[in-house]
Structures are given as structure tokens and as C-alpha cells.
Write a protein that binds this DNA or RNA. Structure first.
Length: 346
DNA sequence: AATACGGGGTG
DNA sequence: CACCCAGTATT
């Protein structure tokens, strides 16, 4: 058996049952692929089901507001995926009359669809011969061929792509793509793969050279920088102030409380002297109900040091983009997990 | 070519 | 704590 036959044979015996593998609907497949970008299957599964239930067709998704889509996406992260997906749905409805594009280049030009996702949809929904190259595939190929170049740089990617093309099964693109990704996810895993039981070990260069642990090689380590957030939860009777986050920063489109950000660790006394605090408070008198400091929230490249200030009082002037809503309606707004966790505990 | 962009699981 | 996940867009 060649590489493709082995890996497809392994796949048929070991694959997980996943809902997006039971459909040929390009809309559902596209939905699953966007959700699964940089996201584990187990984490995306519930979201996939909820999205398909809320928006069974692309017309339903296109009709929804961006805020509805973001609310359903809440907790998944990388929120540009949701915004781009929503924009793409509207584009497909207006430009293609709701018919999902059926060729690689049209699919690739959709918002939020890159090389990986275009190949995935092309092969899974339309049977077109495009190999996918995701994190799983990179790992499997880098090990099997013993590719030592940095896989997160152009040279390494090019080598992997070349090797992948050499083993790609042009006659069974969908099955091959599913198989190699599943193989990477279940067998050829990042840490402590079970090489002794591997069906590819006879021809695996990394196994032969005892380099499995070193491959694939990645260059850049993300530096995690701190940010200091101070949230003002301003209670005005049964109402509360929230504000939507704008472009060019984390959590675009999500809601949060009025935020004062400082460039370093700052005590509550100092925060209360901050120009933004004074601007929000104006001439009103505020009753500080509670201060919860020391909350940490980790993002992929940031660590947030957060303090929450519970305040009873009126806001002097609503900042741009802020609004006053009934506390009971807060649940209708998409908020970052950081905010959601705080609300649940308080 | 490098960086921004979430959140959670795993050893 | 470090690494990684069915990556893409922007600079």
C-alpha cells in the first residue's frame, strides 16, 4: 500500500463520527471549517450545532444581524471569523443568489477563507483535488519526510507543500484530506505520539532518525505582553453602562463596561484620578460598592491584569459608542469571556 | 516576513 | 507553564 492507501485505510477504521462529515451541503461544511480554524474539534462541536440550528441555511445567516452572530459566537475567540463569515454569507446571497460558489478561486476569495479553508471546502463539498495543509498535515508530513526547515516560514511551508503534493491522492481528495488531518489529530499527535503502533513507521524518516520529538520545527515564540484594564461597572438604578469595542484591537464588536486602560500596574487611588475616570464621573457623586482586583485573563499573546469597580451612580456623559441598558438585557449582548466570567461570579 | 487575533486543553 | 489547535488578515 502507498501512503494514501495506508492513511485512508487507517482513517476508515479509526475516524471519529463528526456531524460535518455526514453532509455535502457546502454551507454546513463552510460553517464547520470557519468554526474549526485554530479551534479543537471538541470545542467547536457545540457551536457548529447551535449555528446550524439558529441558521439552517445561508439565507438565515445572511438575514441575521452581526450582533446576533457575535452573540452565538461568544466564547469561541478570534471574533473576526464571525464577522467575516457573516459578511461572506451576505456576499454569497447578493452576488451568487445564495448558491455557494463551487470552484476554488471563488471560494478562496470569500472573506475569512484562506488557502486551507478553500481547499477543505473544495474537496469536501465538491470533490475537487486540492490538498489541505493545516497544523495536523504539517506535522504528519514534516515527520514522515523528515523536513527540518522551519514549518512556519515560507521555505518550510514550500517544502511541506511539495512533499504533500507527492503523496496526495488526486482520485480521492476528500477522503485523503480527512484522513491525513484525522491521522494528525489522533495518531501523529504533537507530544508523545504512539509511534510503536503507527502504520507509517516503516517509511517515516523522523521515526527512523529518532527525530519525532523535534519535528515539526517552529521558529517564533509568541511574546506575551501585559495590559492593564480597569472596568467601571456603573449601576444607575436597574440600568448599566456598556460600550462596544471598536476596530484595531482585541474583541472587536463585543461589548464591555467602560474601560480605563493604563500602561502599567495602577492602584485604585490612582485610577480614580485618571482623566477618563473624571470625565465619566463628572459632577456626580459615585458610591464605590466594591473593587475586585487581581483578575488575570490570558490571550494567545496578551496577559490582561484586570480590576473591576462596582459603582453606584450616574454617568456624566456617555462616551462615544456607549449605551445605557437594563441590567436584565445584558445577556443579549456578546461579551468577552473575561466579562462573562465576572458576571457569573457576581 | 512578521504580527495580531481567543480561548481552552494537555503534559 | 509551554505548546498547540481543521488559520486568516493586516502591516
Amino acid at each position: 500500500m502507498n501512503f494514501s492507501e495506508k492513511i485512508i485505510d487507517w482513517y476508515l477504521k479509526n475516524k471519529r463520527e463528526l456531524p460535518w462529515r455526514e453532509t455535502k451541503d457546502p454551507y454546513a461544511i463552510w460553517l464547520s471549517e470557519i468554526i474549526l480554524q485554530q479551534t479543537r474539534v471538541v470545542q467547536g462541536l457545540d457551536y457548529y450545532c447551535r449555528f446550524l440550528e439558529a441558521f439552517p441555511t445561508i439565507f438565515d445567516l445572511a438575514k441575521a444581524t452581526e450582533e446576533e452572530v457575535l452573540k452565538l459566537w461568544q466564547g469561541l475567540g478570534y471574533y473576526s471569523r464571525a464577522r467575516n463569515m457573516h459578511a461572506a454569507a451576505r456576499e454569497i446571497v447578493t452576488t451568487y443568489g445564495g448558491m455557494f460558489p463551487d470552484n476554488y478561486s471563488a471560494i478562496r476569495s470569500l472573506k475569512g477563507v484562506g488557502d486551507y479553508t478553500a481547499a477543505a471546502i473544495s474537496s469536501f463539498a465538491f470533490g475537487l483535488p486540492y490538498p489541505v495543509m493545516d497544523g495536523n498535515v504539517i506535522r504528519v508530513i514534516a515527520r514522515y519526510f523528515g523536513i527540518v526547515a522551519y514549518c512556519d516560514k515560507a521555505e518550510g511551508k514550500s517544502q511541506i507543500k511539495k512533499a504533500l503534493n507527492a503523496v496526495f491522492d488526486i482520485k480521492h481528495p476528500a477522503e485523503f484530506n480527512q484522513a491525513i488531518m484525522e491521522f494528525g489529530a489522533l495518531q501523529c499527535i504533537p507530544v508523545n505520539p504512539s509511534c510503536s503502533t503507527c502504520i507509517l513507521k516503516e517509511n517515516c524518516v523522523a521515526f527512523e532518525k529518532a527525530m519525532v520529538k523535534e519535528l515539526p520545527v517552529k521558529s517564533s515564540k509568541t511574546i506575551i505582553k501585559p495590559r492593564y484594564f480597569h472596568y467601571l461597572i456603573i449601576h444607575d438604578g436597574d440600568e448599566i453602562i456598556i460600550k462596544q469595542r471598536g476596530a484595531g484591537d482585541i474583541w472587536q464588536g463585543l461589548y464591555e463596561f467602560p474601560l480605563i486602560e493604563t500602561s502599567s500596574e495602577t492602584t485604585p487611588d490612582e485610577v480614580m484620578k485618571h482623566p477618563d475616570w473624571k470625565y465619566l464621573k463628572g459632577k456626580h457623586s459615585w458610591n464605590i460598592l466594591k473593587i475586585q482586583s487581581g483578575v488575570r485573563h490570558i490571550l494567545s499573546h496578551r496577559i490582561l491584569h484586570v480590576t473591576f469597580y462596582e459603582i453606584a451612580g450616574k454617568i456624566y456623559r456617555l462616551p462615544f459608542g456607549a449605551k445605557k441598558i437594563k441590567k436584565d438585557n445584558l445577556q443579549d449582548y456578546a461579551v468577552p469571556v473575561l466579562i462573562e466570567k465576572y458576571l457569573k461570579q457576581n
